[in-house]
Design a binder for these strands. Structure first.
Lengths: 350, 350
DNA sequence: CTGAAAGCGCTTACAG
DNA sequence: CTGAAAGCGCTTACAG
C-alpha cells in the first residue's frame, strides 16, 4: 500500500502538498497538482483513513445504535438501516452498527473515540440513552422522539398519519373504530414512540368525534392477532374497523375474525399503520397500509447527524413525515352502510 | 478525555507500562498494576481506538458487505446481521455495514485500511466480489458459497434441508412435489447460492425417486405467488405438494391455489424452505417451515473471519448447517392418501 | 519488571 | 504556492 510519502517522493513534492490536493484544502498550482495526481494514479494511492482520523480527530464514522432487545422483523427497520448506510457513504462517512444493551455500555463505546456521532433508532418515550447523550458531548440524531420534544428529531407524523387513516375509514362510513397495537413482557414495545403516539392520536380523534376509544394491546405474533379478534368481540362487538399498529399480528387478526364469523373487509376493515407494502402483501386480503417513509427517515436522520458534524446548526431541526396511504383489499364500507346487493332489497326502491 | 500519558503521569510510570496493562501484553508487578488501574479508574480512561489502530495496524473493525440490490425483506437477513454484529462485539471487534455496489467499489473501500477484514452475505454462485477478494490480500469470510467449493465458508446445508423437507412430504404420502422459487429481472436472485442449491438438491431428489421435476420461478411478491398457482395448474396439475423457496410469494400462492379451488393443506401442502417462524406465521394457514439458522450462521461467519484475523488457520473450515423443520398447518397427507372422513365410507368397512 | 524512543500515516498551523 | 516540522495517542521491539 502506497503512502502519502511515496506519492510525494514520486511527484517530487512534500507530503504536505499531497495532503492539500487529496483534501482540496489549499490551492495547488495546476502543474504540481497534475504531477501529484499522476503519481497517485500510478501508485494506486488510497489515503489511510485511520491515520487521517488520528491526525484530524475526525473518524468519519458514525454509529447506528440499535437496541438488542428490539430486533423485530419488519421491512421498515431494514429499509431504514440501509438508507442510513447509503446516505452516510454518499457523504463520505461510514456507518457502524452498534448493538447497545443499555446507556452505560453506550457511553463506554462512545468514549473509545471510534465514531464522530451516533444515530439512534427505536427511540422510546423514556429513553435513558437519550438522557445520557444530552449530558455527554457526543453529537447525535434521533429517528423518533422522546417525551422531550425540544430536541431535534426526524420522525413519522403520527397525528397526520392517524388522521389519514381515520379519514379513509370515515369516508367509507365507519364510526366504531378500534386500535390494535403491540405489547410485550418487557413493556419495551409499549414505550416505543410509535406505539405511544399512535395511541394518543387515536384517542384524541375518537374524543373529538365523540366516539369510544377501544385499544387492544397484544403480542406481535399470530396468537396475538387471534387474541385481539376475540377481545374485540367480547369488549367491543360494534367495531367495524381496526387501526392496526402491530403488523406481525395482522394475519392472526384476519384469521381470528374469520373464525368468529367476521370477514375482512366485508364485516371489518383493517388499516395497518406504519407498515410496508411488502408486509401488507403478506396478508390475505392484501392490507391497506399507511406506508412508513423508511428510506426517507433513514436519509434525513443521517443527514441531520452529518450536518451537525459539519457545523450546521441543526438544533432546531424537527422533521415529521406522514405515512402514505396505499389501498389494499382490507378496507370497505361497513356492513350497514353498504348498499344491499340486488335491486330487490334496495330500500325505498321502485 | 484522558490519554494514556495522563494515566502514566498519575501512576508515576511510563506510558509503555500503561500500555502493557491495558493490553495484558506483558507481565506487570501487582503493585504497579494496581496503581495504574487506580489511575485509570480515577481518570475514567478509555483507550483511543484510532490511535491503537494506527500504531498496531489493526483496526478491530470488520465490514459486512451487503449488496444494495438485494435489500430483500426477510427476517432471516436481519437476524443474521444482528448476530454478526453481536458476535463481533463479543470478541472486541466492531462491525461496519458497507453497502457495496460492485467489486470495484469494494476494493476501493477495502484499500482505505479501515477494516481488518470483510464478511460477505448474499453470496452468488458467480460472485465477482469473491473473485476480487481472493486475488487481494484482505481476509474475508463467506456466508454462503460460490461455485468454488474449495474456499472456506459457512452456509446452509441445502442437501440435508431439502432431504428433510422431502422426507416430511413423502412420509405424509406425497409423490408429485414441485419447487416454487424466486426470480427477478436482473437475474440476481436466480444466481444466489440458496436458489441454485435448492433447485439442484430438489432435482437430484426427484431423479433419484424417479419423479418429474417441476420448477416454477416467480417474482418475490403476492402476484408472483398467484402466478405460480396458475402455472402449476397448467403445467403440473398432479402436484400435491410444494417446496417454496420464495417466502414473499407465500400468501399469494395460498390465495392463488384457493382461487383455483385447491386449499392448503387439504389439497396441496406447502413447505417453506430457509424461512423463519415469524414469516411462517404471517401466512394463513401457518406455514410449515424449514427455519434457517440465521443467528448461528451470523455467529459462525463472524467467528471464521475473526479467527482468521487472529492467526487461526481457517482455510479448511467449511461449515454446513441444516434448516430445522418447524411444523405449521400447511402440510397434510395428499387428498387420495387421506382416509375418508366418516366410517360409512371406510373401504372394506363393516 | 520497566522505560526511552521510534514509528504508525496522516493533518495543520506556521513560515517563507 | 510550497515545505519543514510538530503532533494526533497509541504499540512495540529493544535495552537495561
Amino acid at each position: 500500500m502506497a503512502t502519502m510519502q511515496d506519492v510525494a517522493d514520486r511527484a517530487g513534492v512534500s507530503i504536505a502538498t499531497v495532503s492539500y490536493v487529496v483534501n482540496g484544502t489549499k490551492n495547488v498550482s495546476p502543474p504540481t497538482r497534475a504531477r501529484i495526481e499522476a503519481a497517485m494514479d500510478e501508485l494506486r494511492y488510497r489515503r489511510n483513513v485511520v491515520a487521517r482520523a488520528l491526525a484530524s480527530s475526525r473518524t468519519h464514522i458514525v454509529a447506528l445504535l440499535h437496541p438488542v432487545l428490539g430486533n423485530r422483523l419488519g421491512g421498515t427497520v431494514m429499509g431504514f438501516v440501509i438508507a442510513a448506510s447509503n446516505g452516510a457513504r454518499a457523504r463520505g462517512y461510514d456507518l457502524v452498527l452498534w448493538p447497545v444493551e443499555d446507556e452505560e455500555q453506550m457511553s463506554h463505546l462512545l468514549a473509545g473515540g471510534l465514531v464522530d456521532g451516533a444515530l439512534l433508532m427505536e427511540v422510546r418515550v423514556h429513553d435513558p440513552r437519550v438522557d445520557e447523550l444530552v449530558t455527554s458531548s457526543v453529537p447525535f440524531a434521533l429517528i423518533g422522539r422522546t417525551h422531550d420534544e425540544t430536541l431535534p428529531f426526524v420522525d413519522i407524523d403520527f397525528a397526520a398519519t392517524i388522521d389519514t387513516a381515520m379519514r379513509h375509514l370515515t369516508d367509507l362510513g365507519h364510526q366504531a373504530i378500534a386500535l390494535v397495537d403491540g405489547n410485550d413482557e418487557t413493556g419495551w414495545v409499549a414505550d416505543l414512540g410509535p406505539t405511544v403516539r399512535t395511541e394518543a392520536a387515536y384517542r384524541e380523534h375518537m374524543t373529538a368525534v365523540g366516539g369510544r376509544s377501544v385499544v387492544i394491546s397484544v403480542p406481535p405474533n399470530a396468537a396475538g392477532g387471534i387474541e385481539a379478534a376475540r377481545r374485540l368481540r367480547d369488549e367491543a362487538p360494534e367495531v367495524t374497523a381496526i387501526l392496526l399498529m402491530n403488523e406481525q399480528a395482522a394475519t392472526g387478526l384476519v384469521r381470528g375474525l374469520r373464525e368468529l364469523g367476521r370477514s375482512v373487509p366485508s364485516d371489518v376493515s383493517i388499516v395497518a399503520v406504519s407498515s410496508s407494502i411488502e408486509m401488507g402483501e403478506m396478508v390475505d386480503p392484501v392490507l391497506t397500509v399507511l406506508e412508513a417513509p423508511a428510506r426517507e427517515l433513514g436519509q434525513l436522520g443521517i443527514d441531520a447527524l452529518i450536518d451537525q458534524l459539519e457545523g450546521v446548526d441543526t438544533s432546531r431541526r424537527q422533521v415529521l413525515l406522514p405515512c402514505t396511504l396505499v389501498l389494499g383489499e382490507s378496507t370497505a364500507p361497513p356492513p350497514r352502510a353498504r348498499p344491499p346487493a340486488g335491486p330487490a332489497a334496495r330500500p325505498g326502491g321502485h
